[in-house]
């Protein structure tokens, strides 16, 4: 197992999509902050930017797409260039090959989240008066829950790519899922937290919307209300466990062509 894992990890370190992902996770919070400043200056608005705005509204809001795109770019050659085939030929078991890719994808997503968080925190400390109404613990909870959500999305995307492998269309599916989830999350949050008036949902519909909002990782990364670390973490763990178990069962039976 460890030899395949080292091999995959080395490939991730040298992979251009992973490098681009790392660059985006540094640059995006900076660009977001500078754009924000520029807009305020042009509009001549005297509004203060706080650190929690930079953290929650920049990289994390688009992270489900960035993580999915990076993982898709990184894993595409597994089938198109016969990489996974080669691993199995050299004696790696299917469980080893699958688990290794899941681990590496999770590490990549975690690393990108860490880079973006550190960049956002540095900007916040240097250029803003503080983290608004959030305490340090709440800020830490938020970063951890967002990171766990990103890792779970990376794992889920990896499972989709491996299970659906062998066809080029499979490369578009994780991004399509991310897009659909983002749309659903936006609709759900509009209903739960309307900008005008109060939430009018009741009964089962309210429960379903709330469940989706609080537990589905794609939704956690869209939400602006950031105080539900436990539910987001539980949701991420459920998605990771589901992806690993389902992926192992399907990949074990799959013909690699």
């Amino acid at each position: 197992m460890h030899s395949v894992f080292y091999s995959d990890l080395r490939r991730a370190i040298n992979n251009r999509y992973v490098k681009m992902g790392a660059i985006v996770s540094v640059v995006y919070p900076l660009v977001y902050f500078l754009s924000y400043l520029l807009i305020l200056k042009i509009a001549k608005l005297d509004v203060q930017i706080y650190g929690d705005d930079i953290l929650s509204s920049s990289y994390i809001r688009i992270s489900s797409f960035i993580v999915t795109a990076v993982i898709t770019g990184f894993l595409a050659p597994e089938f198109s260039d016969g990489i996974i085939r080669n691993k199995l030929i050299t004696g790696a078991s299917r469980n080893e090959a699958f688990t290794s890719l899941i681990l590496v994808s999770g590490i990549v997503a975690g690393m990108m989240s860490a880079i973006a968080s550190v960049t956002s925190l540095i900007i916040s400390v240097l250029f803003t008066p503080g983290f608004g109404s959030l305490t340090t613990i709440e800020m830490g909870d938020y970063i951890l829950s967002a990171t766990s959500a990103q890792i779970s999305i990376a794992v889920f995307s990896t499972m989709l790519l491996i299970v659906l492998g062998n066809s080029k269309i499979s490369l578009a599916i994780p991004l399509a899922v991310a897009f659909i989830m983002k749309v659903i999350a936006t609709v759900v949050q509009d209903k739960l937290y309307p900008t005008e008036g109060v939430c009018t949902l009741t009964g089962t519909r309210l429960k379903v919307y709330t469940l989706f909002d609080q537990y589905v990782p794609y939704s956690c990364l869209t939400r602006t209300v950031q105080y539900t670390f436990s539910s987001c973490f539980v949701g991420a763990m459920v998605l990771i466990i589901f992806s690993v178990v389902f992926g192992l069962i399907i990949f074990d039976e799959k013909d690699i062509v």
């Binding site: 992979n15 050659p77 260039d81 016969g82 085939r85 080669n86 030929i89 050299t90 004696g91 790696a92």
Partner: peptide, 19 residues
Amino acid sequence: NKARRRIGAVVESPAVYKD
């Protein structure tokens, strides 16, 4: 799987890391 570690193969197209 141990036995497979003692084989090398080029099946259909060579499996290479293009980057």
